[in-house]
């Protein structure tokens, strides 16, 4: 059973086809990068995978469960339990400290636990900044708080939409390092990025164009342990996407 399966997923806004007939499989522990020009449907895809939106057509299976037509209330519950979200704009609550921002995710999930939240901050190197408000933190630090918050409930899938888009190079390295570590610990990650350096870290890069998968690039660095059972499906998707675009 794959962690995530998209089968013929489309999303239309009025006459705009934001996503068109997407097939994609993500295995547990896999790191996927999604690239593509602005407006190609990357965020739309993240919203659907992250249970914040429903596809117009097609099927989305998360951990084997079809979530494509769940009610908003159920999607909220699934999102809370299975998904960790990292945003380009960090989206910290400005009147709560770094620590409290992490605890908010615990609060909505189950129980706030200060010690555990502090450990999560320590993990992203922000233990000393726990009592600071977002306005007292740099962009890189804010993003690390956002990552600590995304991790706190042990999500099965981490979604990051351009997590380094607002960061300088040094902070980008720090954030990438944390993502790499998460991946090594077994988390599945889908990261949307414009940055080839970030994409290089991933096992596969899915390139979206006009709402369709244009190609899928396997990263050589990971090839040695790239799962065999997926390669057939990947080639198929690759061929289909390429043909449509040619």
């Amino acid at each position: 059973m794959s962690l995530l399966e998209l089968r013929g997923v489309s999303k239309t806004y009025g006459n705009v086809r934001a996503l068109w007939d997407i097939d994609l499989t993500v295995e547990e522990g896999q790191w996927i990068a999604i690239m593509g020009p602005s407006g190609s449907g990357k965020t739309t895809m993240m919203n659907i995978v992250g249970c914040m939106d429903r596809p117009s057509q097609g099927e989305v299976r998360l951990g084997g469960v079809n979530i494509s037509q769940e009610s908003g209330k159920n999607l909220t519950a699934i999102r809370r339990d299975k998904i960790g979200l990292i945003f380009q704009q960090f989206h910290l609550i400005n009147y709560l400290t770094a620590l409290e921002n992490v605890m908010v995710a615990q609060y909505y999930h189950s129980l706030p636990d200060e010690k555990e939240a502090l450990l999560a901050l320590e993990r992203v190197g922000l233990k000393e900044r726990a009592k600071h408000l977002p306005s007292q933190l740099s962009g890189g630090e804010q993003q690390r708080v956002c990552i600590a918050r995304a991790l706190i409930n042990y999500p099965m899938l981490i979604l990051a939409d351009e997590p380094t888009g607002n960061l300088d190079e040094a902070n980008e390295k720090v954030v990438l390092g944390i993502l790499r570590q998460l991946h090594q610990e077994g988390s599945a990650i889908i990261v949307v990025t414009h940055d080839p350096e970030v994409a290089e870290e991933a096992q596969r890069t899915v390139v979206l164009e006009h709402g369709r998968i244009a190609r899928i690039i396997e990263n050589d660095k990971w090839n040695k342990w790239n799962s065999v059972e997926n390669s057939a499906a990947n080639n198929e998707e690759n061929g289909k996407g390429g043909a449509a675009d040619a």
Binding site: A77, I78, K82
Partner: peptide, 14 residues
């Protein structure tokens, strides 16, 4: 209504 997660690294908060 929350569906059970397939793999549970840790369920209880200390």
């Amino acid at each position: 209504d929350a569906p059970k997660r397939a793999a549970e690294p840790r369920r209880e908060r200390p």
